[in-house]
Nucleic acid binder design. Structure first.
Lengths: 329, 329
DNA sequence: GTGAAAGCGCTAACAT
DNA sequence: ATGTTAGCGCTTTCAC
């Protein structure tokens, strides 16, 4: 494999000049540039980025921490991150933690060892103390899920108001027995959405029964089905469901169908995220739209600015209620 | 930031000794090892991987080329790749090409510049000539989609027989007017599956009408819907659909529902891949199961062995027909 | 068992 | 406009 030195010799110039040509500096005469470019072609030379990385102590890699890539919510955000990162010549180091602290450690070590220039954390399971400690020496931003009272910048939505909006919608349709499929309240977003749910019921003068809230440890379809099974066994029948994620809502919807009940006639359902599949169910799913792609764009912009040493402000993106068949009629 | 030299000074040993301790070599006396470890702790030292990368000319990064991460087929495979890669201390550089040659070039350049030790290509749109040329100097394997008559190792399934199996199933249910939603025949898998479709019809003495095949440029739900719209407008009504991907099949299913037709009574539907969504539709989708996760595992194993200079054999994984409601009764 | 020193491939400060 | 040189942080060969 030819290196910069070989190219320099072949072109009859110094390695500094070759480097200048490679980096497009203007202080090279046209003739010299041509000589060098010819040598590069002839030797089929490709500059190794490893030398540059060491010299510049950067890798232009962004570590992206997610629990699971199979969740469409995250894959859409990653899509947004990548498209924006590429423009600034950054690439993505994909890190699925699988909610496993050992995996998390592996990835944080990668950052500690300077294999990545910055971290975008989307993992709600992330160890907050480690994250805060890492943030002292490394560029970190949080996306979607964030840590209250830390100084780590984040981009997210207004979870409480979004949940409030969803439940208000159900209330406006005349529902009063509204169940809620939440995830673990150790997550900021889960607490905030629960607050929104409760506030809406509260304002309507409805006493939220503890039976009406199901705390799911995971976010797969099957968990939504489990939640629904529990709700269907309640003595006092609920007439509406609000789920903290579309995947859960779709699982619930499926379970309702399996029980020969009708959505929305027997039970209305509202999800959260507006993943693409939510428009393919039968009936289609009413949901809160989160701008996942845009959130990814902004997360990428933020982390790049942070790496460049700039100040970055937190960003709260808009959400929107998308009314579809699962709450119609 | 402390470096290896600082640690050496602080511990009163040479740089070489610190390096030995870092790499767990046995030729270090226990006392020295303790001294060094103490210094590492006290200085809060983290070895930079950049120096090692340069020295060893490796990054332990695997470039994973996919068209789009939002397709659950790919995210599941990536899941499998990552879990296996991690065990061997490799990480994943995520590369979404968006079927854009410019993007592809960016990523190939990353490999040329030695930012990755190997490439797993899952992108059917990949430029075959570039890929073959790259394979001369770099470790490459193909996953799922592959290039016929090239020497690039691959892991995939038997597409022709899988499609044949799907169509045979429909035939056995008495269907004779079976439409096929394919993707572009410039892809190996599309040609193979079409061959399987045609072979099954042929054996049944059925003349496959050209109207019965829809070639979709993309693989989103909406493309399945478009295909179905076309089929529904045919003079001679078809009674069954086989789609080359679950996403397309689900789109078709939705369109059938939208037209107040019943699946499977009016039209039976078979998909391909067995993505998780396929069990959440109403009715649930009959589909060909591909072992995505396992395919990822094997792809990772193969590329790592290739990087180590070992010979690797092509792998053809098993597929299976999963009969569900969309072809029941 | 340990240290000195070369060198991986590159960039940039400095010199000319 | 171009060359010389130091050095980024590490591993490894060779000496002792």
């Amino acid at each position: 494999m030819p290196n910069i030195k070989k190219v320099a010799e072949h072109a009859g110039v110094s390695i500094a000049t070759v480097s200048r040509v490679l980096n497009g500096q203007k202080t090279v005469s046209p003739q010299t540039r041509i000589k060098v470019e010819k040598a590069i072609k002839q030797l089929n030379y490709e500059p190794s980025i490893l030398g540059r990385n060491l010299r510049n102590s950067e890798t232009r890699l962004l570590l992206v921490l997610i629990p699971n890539i199979s969740n469409p919510f995250y894959s859409k955000i990653i899509n947004g991150i990548e498209n924006t990162a590429l423009i600034s010549n950054y690439n993505i180091l994909l890190c699925e933690t699988d909610s496993n602290p050992e995996r998390e450690k592996i990835y944080f070590d990668l950052a500690r060892k300077k294999m990545a220039d910055g971290i975008i954390s989307m993992d709600p399971q992330v160890d907050k103390e480690t994250l805060i400690e890492m943030a002292e020496k490394h560029s970190i931003i949080q996306c979607s899920e964030y840590t209250l009272n830390s100084s780590i910048p984040y981009v997210t939505i207004d979870n409480e108001n979004a949940a409030y909006l969803a439940v208000k919608h159900l209330l406006s349709l005349g529902h009063s027995k509204i169940a809620f499929i939440n995830s673990d309240v150790k997550f900021t977003y889960a607490r905030q959405r629960e607050a929104g749910y409760k506030r809406a019921l509260d304002e309507a003068g409805i006493d939220a029964k503890s039976d009406w809230i199901y705390y799911s440890q995971e976010l797969d379809f099957v968990n939504g089905q489990q939640a629904m099974k529990k709700f269907l066994n309640l003595d006092e029948k609920i007439t509406a469901i609000f789920a903290v994620s579309d995947l859960l809502a779709i699982g619930a919807l499926k379970e309702i169908n399996n029980n020969k009940l009708s959505v929305p006639d027997d039970i209305a359902v509202v999800g959260f995220d507006k993943i693409e599949f939510s428009n393919m169910t039968n009936p289609t799913l009413t949901t809160i739209e989160q701008p996942m792609y845009k959130m990814g764009n902004i997360a990428a912009k933020m982390i790049i600015e942070k790496i460049q040493g700039k100040e970055v402000e937190n960003v709260i993106l808009d959400h929107e209620l998308v009314i579809r068949e699962s709450t119609l009629g």
